[in-house]
Write a protein that binds this DNA or RNA. Structure first.
Length: 589
RNA sequence: GAUCCCGUAGCUCAAUGGAUAGAGCAACUGCCUUCUAAGCAGUAGGUUGCAGGUUCGAGUCCUGCCGGGAUCGCCA
């Protein structure tokens, strides 16, 4: 289903084409100044030079042609503004019938942008043995939103968590266990098939930082870790078994966090799950003459002529024979091409890794692992900073755990419910559910509304705020509409199928008709904040409409039913938009 | 040093090359005896870091400078 602007563009294209003007300039957009027009077409100005005419004159001609072509009474007012803007105001009947179509649209205004092409989205990327912290928030939330948006617009979207489970930290942990428990059968060569090391997340959260620091301070200790990493990767059975147990424990912990956030993954693969593909992949790269030895390591050159900066080669094998994440990322591409045949692969990973992805992508193209026809995108995001402008740390200097952030949000939501004396009549279970949904909406919206590429400041108060441009505000508006519709139904009133528009509802109606363009724009840039911004504007426009006219007491039945229909349509749009962002609307609050 | 990103209201952020640069927070003024005030209506707040250039038109594109951040081979 097209937006109103898109429908109008087909008309201006006809006019431009009939006048011999370049059709690519015919695009109609929502007007920048709502006082003078609803829509505008700027095409007269760029066409002026080639046509050797005054842009205002061209605009006049386009307008005349539009009026000539307009057999259905689409246009209410056409005029030329400023240097040659074509200002368009459409007839209310045109908007109304558009809304009727929209109300009957199965897709709820979500555009169809694909025909089932597979796209893999790589996000989350939590590391084994580490507690998830607020730093994992952006990747998880943005990635999940993109997955939902792509799924809704017709892609076969696959989310992959891509665990960090195969690098140096693994060796650090294994060697630490070996130092502490040399008697464990993993290390003595005994039978470990029924041995339970009783590993817990709490224990891992102590062991990993301890081992990591020990390796940093002591080269000999680090050497042990390096060796353990290489042996793990080369198939040491005891190490593998121990590794498997702590990976499982870690995944259970991650799932708690992701479930609480409502972040979904289709695949729970990790760096380690593609290890079996590496040797063959590297052999091929050698045969192709791309892999070469350098200072004891095996590397592939990825520098190209005309590079503005030096792109170092990608290291396939380190001097000690272990692989790094560049190798596993490359092997993961082999795996994805084999298993999923995607048309796009999108990485939602910190912007600071852009050089790494440049290297991996180049190596993948060079080695013929991923053909040019498959899009490889690093949808990087900026760093989350504290109020001091430096990477966020808690007051104690540590990182804030994700579960702590969620816990604080939920507690604040409970408090707010008490204060506002809301939800008093709800059963405790529902009340708790509402508090949780409000907290998640707050956290997700606060994060998603920031432009993906820019760094942003993490502010706990802002993240758990419920007023203004926040997730809870959007929930509140959606719930308020539902409550209104419920009351209407109780009184036997039904939303109509026709829309009769007046000044009060016109801005909202026009805004709702932008939905497909907004979603397409957000997806084009992989920027959920565009959906956030749009959803907020819809909620705000509704709230304004709601404040301007009382609906249930409206005596004109046609008008009342039209307004109810507008409410129903708004509620549906809001729910759909929030769903694209991974935000759930409670029944009541 | 090289490369990339960022610089917009007191603060946090928006603005497919389009007209008079917009929101939220904070501040101030009103509005709950009709549908949920987590709300609505309004006031105030700007030399878009600086200087040039391209364009009919620049916060947006180009060049230079200033300021901040990131990255630049065996961590991820």
């Amino acid at each position: 289903m097209d937006s109103l602007a898109a429908k109008l563009t087909t008309l201006t294209e006809q006019a431009f084409s009939a006048l011999g003007l370049p059709v690519e300039h015919a695009r109609v957009a929502v007007s920048g100044q709502a006082e003078s027009a609803q829509f505008q077409c700027n095409g007269a100005m760029p066409s002026a030079k080639a046509a050797k005419k005054n842009p205002r004159q061209i605009a006049e001609e386009v307008i005349a042609k539009l009026q000539e072509l307009d057999s259905e009474g689409v246009f209410a007012l056409l005029s030329v503004g400023g240097p040659g803007f074509i200002n368009i105001t459409v007839a209310d009947g045109f908007i109304g019938s558009h809304l009727t179509d929209l109300a009957g649209d199965q897709k709820e205004g979500v555009p169809k942008l694909a025909k089932g092409e597979t796209v893999i989205i790589d996000y989350g990327g939590p590391n084994v043995a580490k507690a998830m912290h607020v730093g994992h928030l952006r990747s998880s939330i943005i990635g999940d939103a993109l997955r939902r948006m792509m799924l809704a617009t017709g892609y076969k979207a696959i989310g992959d968590v891509h665990l960090g489970d195969w690098g140096t930290p693994m060796g650090q942990i294994i060697s630490e266990y070996e130092l502490r428990h040399p008697e464990w059968p993993y290390f003595t060569g005994g039978d470990f098939s029924s041995f339970d090391p009783q590993i817990t997340m709490v224990q891992l959260e102590e062991i990993y930082p301890f081992a990591s620091k020990a390796c940093k301070d002591d080269p000999e200790r680090a050497e042990k870790a390096r060796k353990a990493t290489a042996e793990l990767q080369n198939g040491h059975p005891g190490y593998r078994a121990l590794w498997t147990t702590f990976v499982e424990v870690s995944i259970a912990g991650m799932k708690n966090n992701f479930d609480a956030l409502g972040v979904h993954f289709d695949l729970w693969k990790g760096e380690g799950s593609v290890h079996h593909l590496i040797s063959l992949m590297v052999e091929r790269l050698k045969d192709q003459g791309f892999a070469r030895e350098d200072d004891g390591a095996l590397v592939i050159d990825v520098a190209l002529e005309g590079d503005k900066k030096e792109i170092p080669p990608l290291i396939l094998y380190k001097r000690d024979g272990a692989v790094m994440y560049g190798t596993t990322d490359l092997a993961t591409l082999v795996d994805r091409m084999n298993e999923n045949h995607p048309s796009k692969i999108i990485y939602v990973v910190d912007q600071r890794q852009s050089l790494h992805f440049e290297q991996v992508f180049r190596a993948a193209r060079k080695g013929g692992i991923v053909p040019e026809s498959v899009e490889l995108t690093h949808a990087g995001f900026g760093t989350m900073n504290g109020p001091d402008g430096k990477p966020f740390k808690t007051r104690a200097g540590g990182v804030m755990k994700l579960e702590d952030l969620i816990g604080m949000g939920v507690e604040k939501a409970r408090e707010r419910l008490r204060e506002a004396k809301l939800a008093e009549d709800m059963p405790p279970k529902e009340k708790e559910d509402v508090a949780h949904k409000v907290a998640i909406a707050a956290i997700k919206f606060a994060d998603l509304q920031n432009n993906r590429v820019a760094d942003y400041v993490f502010d706990l108060d802002r993240m758990t705020a419920f007023e203004g441009k926040t997730g809870p505000y959007l929930l509140y508006q959606a719930v308020r509409i539902n409550s209104l519709l419920k009351k209407a139904a109780e009184q036997g009133m039904k939303p109509g199928t026709e829309f009769s528009l007046q000044d009060e509802e016109r801005p909202l109606a026009l805004l709702l008709s932008e939905m497909p363009d907004q979603i397409a724009q957000a997806l084009k840039n992989y920027s959920p904040h565009i959906v956030c911004d749009y959803a907020y504007r819809v909620a705000q426009e509704f709230s304004s409409f709601y404040g301007n006219c009382h609906i249930l007491s409206e005596t004109d039945e046609v008008l009342r039913n039209s307004r109810l229909a507008l409410c129903a349509l708004t509620a549906r749009h809001l729910r759909t938009l929030l769903a694209l962002l991974g935000i759930e609307v409670p029944e009541r609050m």
